[in-house]
Nucleic acid binder design. Structure first.
Length: 284
DNA sequence: TGCCAGGCATCTA
DNA sequence: TAGATGCATGGC
């Protein structure tokens, strides 16, 4: 038995594969020992055994990871609400162990700036090069995600190694806004969601999609709805009258299940065309 | 080889 | 105000 391996708590239905490969986070990889991830300068390897979420990490990091995986959130109650909508329940059934993670604000802001008009393998590559460029070294040859100050100290020339294209300017702008105090996650979290959203969208490179992802994944605003064109069409096909009432207060979480259903159960690019035009909504 | 990617800013009508 | 276009890069 690995002496460093210990329980963070009951997994409460959490599915690591579904959650960590769902496109809401970009610094996790599957290893023979479990899922290895880095967030907020902490490295961890997690896996689930006998209904417990096990972690290999310093015990002092346990509260961080318990919060990261939202182990305190009662998904049984949330999913029971969702079950009142037949179609939403069908989406949940496709990945019932999917969870919305509580990730560090700045990491979410940067990774979703990188994500725009991009694909997941390339997003991961750019994020890793960013961490190699200016993230603090961690044991085991790993790198932390850069602090706002470390990123703000970069220049367009030094950022060229990322091969991130125009997104590099957005990253520098975001980092400098945080360092200057112009953008403060604590203040954002205290604002009504609509005001926080508007404040985020005042940043160059942050549109409605990125802003909503930051609200949902980085500030724990469970009602935020990340919307891109593909998702809007899937939503329109599944729920032409809008998000079902059963999702009230948890629309962002509900949408995570809808998105995962569309991503994994519909043909490639399907929600753009197939769901809306061929009646995929009739199957759920 | 060409399409497209969990968008956004900018331009134009 | 809505729709079209360009943007940098690489996965597939």
């Amino acid at each position: 038995m690995d002496k460093d391996l210990h329980a963070l708590g009951p997994a409460r239905g959490l599915d690591l594969d579904a959650t960590l490969s769902s496109g809401q986070c970009f610094r996790w990889q599957q290893t023979p020992a479990g899922w290895q991830g880095i967030a907020a300068g902490r490295a961890v390897t997690v896996r689930i055994e006998n209904g417990l979420l096990l972690a290999r990490c310093p015990a002092a990091d346990d509260p961080f990871w318990q919060n990261y995986f939202a182990l305190d959130l009662d998904y049984t109650a949330i999913l029971a609400r969702f079950a009142k909508s037949r179609r939403l329940a069908a989406c949940v059934a496709a990945a019932p162990g999917l969870r919305v993670l509580r990730q560090p604000f700045f990491e979410v802001l940067c990774t979703f700036l990188i994500s725009q008009n991009n694909n997941i393998p390339r997003i991961r590559g750019i994020v890793e090069r960013l961490c190699a460029l200016c993230g603090a070294p961690l044991p085991g040859g790993l790198r932390a995600f850069p602090t706002p100050a470390a990123l703000a100290a970069q220049t367009p020339d030094t950022m060229a190694v990322l091969r991130a294209g125009w997104r590099s300017d957005y990253l520098l702008g975001a980092a400098r806004a945080v360092v200057s105090g112009d953008l403060c996650p604590d203040l954002l979290a205290a604002l009504p969601p609509e005001q926080a959203r508007a404040r985020l969208m005042a940043l160059k490179g942050v549109g409605p999609k990125v802003a909503d992802c930051v609200l949902l994944y980085g500030l724990g605003v469970w009602d935020a709805c990340p919307m891109d064109v593909w998702m809007k069409k899937a939503m329109k096909a599944f729920f032409p009258k809008g998000m079902p009432r059963a999702a009230k207060g948890y629309a962002g979480i509900a949408q995570q299940y809808i998105f995962e259903y569309a991503r994994t159960r519909l043909p490639r690019g399907g929600a753009k065309k197939t769901a809306a035009q061929t009646g995929a909504h009739g199957r759920i």
